[in-house]
Amino acid sequence: MSSNTVISAQNLSLTFQTGDGPVHALKDVSLEVEKGDFVSFIGPSGCGKTTFLRCMADLEHPTGGTLTVNGTSAEEARKSRAYGYVFQAAGLYPWRTIGGNIRLPLEIMGYARDDQEARVKRVLDLVDLAGFERKYPWQLSGGMQQRASIARALAFDADILLMDEPFGALDEIVRDHLNEQLLQLWDRTNKTICFVTHSIPEAVYLSTKIVVMSPRPGRITDVIESTLPKHRPLDIRETPEFLEIAHRVREGLRAGHGDAV
């Protein structure tokens, strides 16, 4: 484990006891995430990618192995507010304005009033929603709502951003746009991002590291270091290099799944 390691999992396992016997959501998962990495987790449903992310967030409790976040346990990391978590649904409160929604974690964490205002302004700029502070969620499109939820996760000083299929419910065009924006945001903020997805192009386009997972039991079958440059215009997705990485991801998924993916 180098000094730059932000998240480190060693032989991590999580077994749910159900009426039909134990379910191995994660089995012997080991992974190191370095500071500033953009790591994507990809795999079919049931492969444990979301469970792994939830373990990092201390929303699930591993039954075996060790997991450290920022050098501490996941629980301590959560309590020290080390990460921002973006869920699949934006989950904005309808009774709060966009600004009020972004202020919510800041109020909970006890930031000073004027600091809250400054931070809301700053993150709204970051996600390109300046001027929408006083609007209510229902006045925004789905893509804009998801951007507001990303802004909310960025508002407090967490170096880690955990994202669980944040664009899964959005259409292709909006998704492309948000992917591009997310890369710019990552570039500007220098955060470490863990990103769960089931889209191969999305994973390859965004990541510095792609973690391919497979189900029953949930495990890592391949970890691919991306050779793509940090600056990535959308049309990089048609270059041979991109297609080669995508091919490797697909191979990994197929290998882990037996045959058909």
Partner: peptide, 18 residues
């Protein structure tokens, strides 16, 4: 509140009163 909303509060380490 949806489980997701309660999880979200947990990620912010919100107290029961909050």
């Amino acid at each position: 509140p949806a489980p997701m909303q309660l999880d979200q509060m947990r990620t912010w380490s919100a107290s029961a009163a909050q």
